[in-house]
Computed example of a mutant assay.
Amino acid sequence: MGALLSCLQSAQNPSVPLTFPSLKSSGPKTTHKTKTVSQFFSSVFQTVSDFSWSILKSNFVEDDRTPIRSGEDGVEFRPITLSTLTFSIDEIKLIKNKLGVTINDVIAGIIFLGTRIYMQEVTQKSSSERCTALVLLRTRNIEGYTPIKEMIEPNNAKMSWGNQFAFLHLPVPKSTEISNPLDFVWEAQQMIKKKRSSAASYLTSWLLDILKKFRGPEGAARYIHGTLKNSSMTISNMIGPVEKMALDNQPVGGFYFMVVGPPQCLTVTALSYMGKLRVAFGAEKGFIDSQKLKASMQNAFGAILEASNPIPPANAA
């Protein structure tokens, strides 16, 4: 995707590079420059716990069978149905500012709530099965997308071809009664914040490098395959340009990306572009009802937006 975006130009001025949102956090900055002893040991414990659980989850512990996970072999060879939804970035930022969370927290909360709504509608009962989302993280040490000219330069240590990523296991919050949509955003925030305090993602990336070095690409691929197979869904998101772009002077009205061929029944991707967030769903055809899933995600977004911005009473001052 980085290579693709580096081939595109601004529709208004092809000589000007595309503009991307800042990757810097907009949240309040902490004034503490050093960690306390308790924080250090807490971070170490969290790292060991997360990394150990990641290894167990990748090799031994499978998710339960649910309306989004059949648990059968050969899922990666079955046809999928692609569908997309578009949300307003401004409305997502409105939720973010009201709740004091990040955009990623809001997106995760919407996907988690929509998933539980779908599962509950399909089974006609509260869904509390073990359901894990595998969140992919880019580990490239870059702040943007490198032009193709730089990528093909020999001996360019800053940019190498191929995917470089790690992953986090995030359990989809259980819900016996979906009554407070904001709980899904809060739980997503707590989980993501907790995972960020550990170095498990870096250790996972290091483990994949070790497997690739000693067992070859096939060994690393088998480990990733097992990781995907034991979880229920994959979530991957990217930051896109803020202005309209063009390919060979042809304006691009919208686009999305999809990870195809994983041993999972459901893959979710999100990509921002021109003030819109386009969420795409790759669902196993004949097993997941894509239209019902889309409706569940749309209802989840509406419920979270309404709950975060309650309408005041008509007689309020």
Rank of each mutant, 00 (worst) to 15 (best):
A200E: 11
P79I: 02
E284H: 02
S15G: 03
N249M: 07
S232P: 05
S231H: 06
T123I: 01
A300W: 09
P313T: 03
I110M: 09
N141Y: 01
P263L: 11
L82H: 14
L136R: 05
S231G: 10
Q124G: 02
S179T: 15
L94K: 14
R278L: 10
G162A: 07
E121W: 06
Q120I: 03
Y145I: 09
N299E: 12
I68Q: 09
L136Y: 07
A188T: 10
Q298Y: 01
A133Y: 01
D50S: 11
Y223N: 03
S232I: 04
C265S: 14
P17H: 03
S308R: 08
T86G: 06
D63P: 05
L203E: 03
E153Y: 05
A200M: 03
G253E: 13
L23P: 06
S25D: 14
V48L: 15
P181E: 07
G74Q: 08
G27F: 01
S43W: 00
V268C: 12
K174Y: 00
P181C: 08
F60K: 04
L94W: 00
R130S: 12
Y256A: 13
I103M: 11
G74D: 10
S236T: 14
R222F: 02
I224H: 02
P154E: 03
H169D: 15
D105G: 03
P262Y: 09
M191Q: 13
Q46C: 02
E150F: 09
E243V: 01
K158N: 12
E284K: 07
Y145R: 06
V106C: 12
I304Y: 09
V252K: 07
G100A: 05
Q190G: 07
I148T: 03
G226H: 13
E177L: 13
N230G: 01
S26D: 10
S272F: 05
G100Q: 07
K125N: 10
H32G: 01
V259D: 06
K57P: 00
F165L: 14
K244I: 10
V260P: 00
L136A: 15
M297I: 10
S126C: 10
K213F: 13
A133P: 01
T176I: 08
A280Q: 14
K194W: 04
K98C: 10
G74P: 08
V242L: 11
I178G: 01
L266H: 09
K195G: 00
S197T: 12
Q9M: 02
F45T: 08
P310N: 07
G100W: 02
E129Q: 15
E72P: 00
T36S: 15
V252Q: 03
T227R: 08
